[in-house]
Simulated scan of single mutants.
Amino acid sequence: MKLLGVSGTIIGAKTSIVVQKVLEEAKKYQPDLEVELLDLREYEVQFCDGRNPSDYNDDTKKVLEIIHSADFYIIGTPIFQGSLSGPLKNLFDLINPKDLRNKIMGFIATGGTYQHYLVIENQLKPIAGFFRAFVAPGYVYVNNDHFNRDNEIIDTDVLNRITSLASEVVFMQKALKSTENQLTSVF
């Protein structure tokens, strides 16, 4: 099983730090789990304009292949102007919906105010619904106050939510695979 963490921003480090922490916790629950962090800061993903995916630059094609190869996801975004980041929205626009259909997603978000957690409920979960993905019931919202000056997460409640999200997505993925295997053996 491959869990892909997506840090959906091209600036800042906090989102990537939280996504990485969830991946580390998931690995504790499932030691043989393959984890990978897709940090959009490391790629030059082109703007989605409707062309054939094979016509995009190499970075864009590589990112789409990484998305396609994963079994389940932790997707993170900073909140800008009360919304998900532009780079993450662009990535969603580029993804073939078949690549996320019936896959598990967990969400994290980082932001400067305590009200921005609503972006997960009001924007990210509906996007997952469009893709027909299964969404972990819990999520993690991390405010700037939850980090110290070295960008380390210092809030105990946030750390507990990170652990809970990791266990939820691993549990859901194992249950989904078990159900798929049972159905395959019957039919």
Rank of each mutant, 00 (worst) to 15 (best):
V19S: 13
K21W: 09
K21I: 06
K21D: 12
V22C: 07
V22K: 06
L23E: 12
E24K: 14
E24Q: 13
E25H: 12
E25F: 08
E25Q: 15
A26Y: 13
A26L: 12
K28F: 10
K28D: 12
Y29D: 13
Y29M: 10
Q30H: 15
Q30K: 15
P31W: 03
D32A: 13
D32I: 10
D32L: 14
L33T: 06
E34K: 14
V35S: 13
V35M: 07
V35C: 12
D39N: 14
D39S: 09
L40P: 02
Y43H: 08
E44T: 15
E44P: 06
V45E: 03
F47C: 00
F47W: 11
C48P: 03
C48Q: 10
C48S: 15
D49P: 00
G50Q: 00
G50K: 00
G50P: 00
G50L: 03
R51F: 01
N52F: 07
N52P: 01
N52W: 01
P53K: 10
D55L: 14
D55G: 00
Y56P: 03
D59G: 00
K61M: 08
K62I: 04
V63K: 03
E65V: 00
E65W: 01
E65M: 03
I66H: 02
I66R: 07
I67C: 04
H68C: 09
A70M: 09
D71L: 02
F72P: 02
F72S: 11
F72A: 10
Y73G: 01
Y73D: 05
Y73Q: 05
I74M: 09
I74Y: 08
I74K: 08
I75Q: 10
I75E: 05
G76N: 11
G76A: 11
T77A: 11
T77P: 11
P78Q: 05
P78Y: 05
P78F: 02
F80Y: 15
F80A: 07
F80L: 13
Q81L: 13
Q81T: 13
Q81H: 14
Q81P: 02
G82P: 05
G82W: 12
S83C: 08
S83F: 10
L84C: 10
S85R: 10
G86H: 10
P87Q: 05
N90Y: 02
N90A: 01
L91C: 01
F92I: 09
D93H: 04
D93W: 07
L94P: 07
I95C: 07
N96P: 03
N96Y: 03
P97L: 03
K98S: 13
K98D: 14
K98L: 15
L100D: 10
R101C: 12
R101E: 15
N102S: 13
K103M: 02
K103C: 07
K103H: 06
I104S: 04
I104Y: 02
I104G: 03
G106S: 03
G106Y: 08
G106I: 01
F107I: 07
F107P: 05
F107S: 04
A109H: 07
A109L: 06
G111T: 00
G111C: 03
G112A: 12
G112T: 09
T113A: 11
T113P: 08
T113N: 06
T113C: 05
Y114W: 14
Q115D: 14
Q115L: 14
Y117K: 14
Y117M: 12
Y117C: 10
L118Y: 09
V119N: 08
I120P: 00
E121P: 04
E121H: 07
N122I: 12
N122L: 15
